[in-house]
């Protein structure tokens, strides 16, 4: 390769890297279209037993007011929602309730917070606050980053 071609290639690569980084920033920051939505109030009952939450997945929309009712069916269990810092402890005959506004969108794992046996650390469910914008952005980021990497390393 001649020196000129080499330097052209370097400039070219720099351009690719710079545009990829800009596009990735855009994927993080670009406002995503939002649908008009009137928030609702939900009361969601979760039954906890070793080592399962039933239902294991909950779905609400951003802005909804969520009342979680935790009922333990076999022994003492807790429910801690990542990111919302909600912590409930229930026992058969003593259910527990918490109300909060689901103001952050995304997927939040909830997990048992009172040791209940071997699989306790893996007693996990998930609260989906839709629309799951972090996931959409992560996918965009992966696409832009992946295509950028392809272009960057392509010969």
């Amino acid at each position: 390769m001649t020196k000129a071609a080499l330097s052209y290639r370097h400039t070219h690569r720099f351009g690719i890297a710079a545009s990829a980084v800009l596009l990735m920033l855009a994927a993080i920051l670009v406002p995503l279209p939002a649908q008009a939505y009137t928030p609702r109030a939900h009361t969601l009952q979760i039954n906890a037993r070793a080592f399962a939450f039933e239902p294991g997945s909950l779905s609400v929309r951003r802005g909804d007011t969520v009342t979680l009712v935790l009922e333990a069916t076999d022994t003492v269990h807790g429910l801690y929602v990542d990111g919302y810092d909600v912590n409930l402890v229930a026992e058969p005959g003593k259910s527990a309730t918490a109300t909060f506004v689901a103001d952050k969108e995304g997927k939040f794992k909830f997990r048992c917070s009172v040791a209940c046996g071997a699989l306790h650390p893996f007693m996990i469910g998930e609260l989906n606050v839709e629309p799951n914008l972090p996931f959409v952005r992560a996918l965009l980021l992966t696409l832009v980053g992946g295509i950028g990497a392809l272009a960057f390393f392509w010969k």
Binding site: Y80, D82, G83, Y84, D85, K104, G106, K107, F108, P134, A138, L141, T142, G145, G146, G148, A149, L150, F153
Partner: peptide, 20 residues
């Protein structure tokens, strides 16, 4: 607890870019 995925996304992305 609420920030895990924001740590996981860049790690996975870096892995993918290196793999590509």
């Amino acid at each position: 607890a609420g920030l895990q995925s924001f740590l996981q996304i860049p790690i996975l992305l870096a892995g993918l870019i290196a793999a590509i």
